[in-house]
């Protein structure tokens, strides 16, 4: 009898949840199944590499799970850590954008983006951690479509998926080309994801990512600074100068914008303008004032 009561309790939990999601999703299509996401049957312990390979290939990058194993797998853990998946996506020149929660997941899938999810198929004290790719859902029937290491897509009841996903605090990961922003993107979170491309020294993709961000958030200071810094790393000085000039124009109180502009102008040999920008940065001051003074001193003291 207690077991039966427990079952009813669960049914009571799962039912409204789906209705709630239906309401939240508003006008979004109630059924989506993405095409073009390959299915890689999964080797033992290699679900991380398989899931990443599926989304990378979907994003237009030919790869295999085997090729990704050295970048994601931790032998002693017999699995892959989330930061390793994030890093490997960046090293492939893709924006790795973490999402959290059911609404964001379904919105991204509805927008055509497959999402890597981390689920615990077992229990908290007997975990069976697993990466899968969500490629579709059906809100009226109540299931999600998963590419989960089998030869066929898996149609998992929404309630089972929710139970297994909740144990990772509903962690999901988008792996997108730098010209394809997430529909749920927030400015700071998206720029942090593009910054990851800088960290992985994928400068061309970083440039594209910052340009994408600027379309969505025109005049964003971190996006303009990132654009300038990425062009600077590519030694494309005129373009770097343009970006920093824009940053200084939109944010006349940003010493960092004037500082970097001064450095680039100086290296271009435009000493007078460099000097003016460096003096402006020093005058603005702030927590990075030491850096600004150093730039000014270098420009005053000699040739680049």
């Amino acid at each position: 009898m207690p077991v039966l009561a427990f079952c009813f309790f669960l049914a009571g939990c799962a039912g409204p949840q789906l209705a709630q999601i239906r309401e939240q999703m508003g006008t979004a299509p109630s059924r989506v199944e993405l095409k073009g996401v390959p299915l890689f049957p999964q080797e033992a312990q290699q679900c991380g590499a398989a899931a990443l390979a599926m989304v990378l290939q979907w994003s237009g990058l030919p790869t295999t799970p085997e090729a990704l194993v050295p970048e994601v797998y931790s032998p002693a853990l017999k699995g892959s850590l989330q930061p390793a998946i994030v890093g490997a996506a960046r090293r492939s020149g893709r924006v790795a954008y973490p999402i959290s929660g059911t609404k964001a997941l379904l919105q991204e899938v509805a927008a055509g983006h497959p999402v890597i999810v981390l689920v615990n198929l077992g229990l908290s004290w007997y975990p069976k951690w697993h990466y899968a790719v969500v490629t579709g859902y059906d809100l009226s029937e109540g299931f999600v479509v998963l590419h989960s290491g089998k030869i066929e897509p898996e149609y998992l009841p929404f309630r089972v998926f929710q139970n297994t996903w909740a144990r990772s605090h509903r962690w999901g990961l988008l792996v997108l080309g730098p010209g394809d922003p997430p529909v749920t993107a927030g400015e700071t979170a998206y720029l942090a994801a593009v910054l990851g491309l800088e960290k992985a020294r994928r400068w061309h993709e970083a440039v594209k990512g910052y340009q994408t961000a600027l379309q969505q958030w025109p005049g964003s200071l971190p996006a303009l600074m990132g654009l300038g810094n990425s062009f600077y790393a590519l030694r494309e000085l005129p373009r770097a100068a343009n970006a920093f000039q824009e940053a200084a124009r939109f944010h006349p109180a940003s010493g960092a914008a004037f500082n970097n502009l001064a450095q680039v102008l100086w290296e271009e040999g435009r000493r007078e303008k460099a000097l003016a920008a460096a003096q402006k940065a020093v005058a603005l001051g702030g927590p990075l004032a030491d850096t600004y003074r150093k730039t000014l001193k270098e420009i005053q003291s000699g040739t680049p």
């Binding site: 700071t188 720029l191 810094n229 990425s230 450095q263 270098e298």
Partner: peptide, 14 residues
Amino acid sequence: GRAQAAMVGTETVL
């Protein structure tokens, strides 16, 4: 000059 370039990184701004 290049090595010491006192550029402010994107991460600092972000």
